[in-house]
Computed example of a mutant assay.
Amino acid sequence: MERNDLIRDMIEYINSDLGYPVELDEASSLSEDVGLDSLDATDLISYMERKYDFKVEDSELSILKESIGDIVDFILNRLKNESQNIS
């Protein structure tokens, strides 16, 4: 999985499915730049979990206060760790 693909997918979901038609990049903050409320942030992470088959624990949800790039790095690390646990 490519980092840029994940960033593009997340931005597309925020713009189209969640209805936040703002210009975003990997440095954009979901809370400050987008203004995502907690319900939409939960919806976004649920979408990413389903699409990429990983799980975010409740104690890790603070990641949603970070930038899109930080969230994507978190997801990529989680996917890498989960694939290593399977091997």
Results as ranks from 00 to 15, higher is better:
2 E>G: 06
4 N>I: 09
4 N>C: 00
4 N>H: 08
5 D>Y: 07
5 D>S: 10
5 D>G: 00
6 L>G: 03
6 L>F: 07
8 R>W: 02
10 M>K: 10
12 E>Q: 14
14 I>F: 05
15 N>L: 00
15 N>I: 06
16 S>G: 11
16 S>Q: 14
17 D>I: 07
17 D>A: 14
18 L>I: 03
18 L>Q: 05
19 G>S: 08
19 G>I: 04
20 Y>G: 01
21 P>I: 00
23 E>F: 09
23 E>P: 05
24 L>G: 07
24 L>P: 01
27 A>T: 14
28 S>C: 12
28 S>H: 08
29 S>E: 03
29 S>D: 00
29 S>I: 01
29 S>M: 11
30 L>S: 03
32 E>P: 00
32 E>F: 09
32 E>G: 00
36 L>V: 05
38 S>P: 08
39 L>A: 10
39 L>H: 03
39 L>Y: 05
39 L>F: 10
39 L>G: 01
40 D>Q: 09
42 T>M: 15
44 L>R: 07
45 I>Q: 03
45 I>P: 02
46 S>P: 00
47 Y>G: 04
47 Y>R: 10
47 Y>M: 12
47 Y>W: 14
48 M>A: 13
49 E>R: 11
50 R>N: 15
50 R>L: 12
51 K>L: 13
53 D>I: 05
53 D>H: 10
54 F>L: 09
54 F>C: 06
56 V>F: 08
56 V>I: 15
57 E>K: 10
59 S>M: 09
59 S>V: 12
60 E>W: 00
62 S>N: 11
62 S>F: 08
63 I>D: 03
66 E>T: 04
66 E>F: 01
68 I>Q: 01
69 G>N: 00
69 G>Y: 02
70 D>T: 12
70 D>K: 11
71 I>V: 14
71 I>W: 01
71 I>G: 02
73 D>G: 00
73 D>R: 09
73 D>E: 14
74 F>A: 02
74 F>K: 02
74 F>R: 01
76 L>V: 11
76 L>C: 11
77 N>E: 15
77 N>F: 14
77 N>L: 15
80 K>P: 07
80 K>L: 15
81 N>Q: 13
82 E>S: 13
82 E>Q: 13
83 S>G: 05
83 S>W: 09
84 Q>C: 08
84 Q>N: 11
86 I>G: 08
86 I>H: 12
86 I>D: 10
86 I>F: 11
86 I>P: 00
87 S>W: 09
